[in-house]
Amino acid sequence: MLNVFSAIGVRTTTTIGAFGQSAIFCWQMFRWLIPGLVQRSTWSRTMPLFFEIGNRTLPVILVTGTFVGLVLAIQSYDQLSAAGFENHMGILVTVSLVQELGPVLAGVMLAGRVGGALTAELGTMRVTEQISALSVMGTDPIRQLVVPRFLACLLFAPLLTFFCDVAGSLAGWFVAVMMKGIPSGPYWYHIKDAIEGWDVMVGFTKSLVFGGAIALIACYKGFHCRTGAEGVGKACTESFVISFIVILITDFFIGTFLSGLYRGLYGFKSLI
């Protein structure tokens, strides 16, 4: 019985400890980030990462966005044409992409293709004492390693979302105009009519939050990885799973909050 209690106790303290540790980690990152924004060295470390992330994620996101757009268009056409609204089908496809699927898919791609790689890279540096070596040589490892990776992910996520949106919308257009024979003019007209700056802002906000969260989770997991090759592997898996869950949960909360805000500011908007 006592064992059970002590096990719960140990579990609780380690959980609270990890929570505090990650909070301190984030705080230190932001403390280095703000002054780092105006330093050239920060950007010279960020730019190569930025291109590497692009290389890793852009092709995948274009393929994903295209197929999601195709599926969305085919499903919405059947429903809308039954009600005689098929000219409006572009709205459904585009709003879903811009507000939801674009940022979420970009986030998932970033977590899978980039987050895992970042955790592996930093985890290896931890295990081989390269991170300790940075500290001993008088450099802050968070400033040196985490800040540029955070910036690169933060800035790339909206770009990735944009490409996903564009690919999906073109795919929707392809289904509507080339396959279902809807005239191109009305298709785009209804989209322009329905999509507002607000929708773009929602998607943009989400993607920024996802990008930043993925970078922090990936770097934290790498920095606190256990020794040994299996430690790095485990950290990578955890990094992806946590990022994925965090994306879906924050998507819900940001979505709820912003749609509440919209209704408070402008009232209900009917798409059709």
Partner: peptide, 10 residues
Amino acid sequence: FLFQLSALFD
């Protein structure tokens, strides 16, 4: 500091 695994930056 000479680290056990050398800790050179890869």
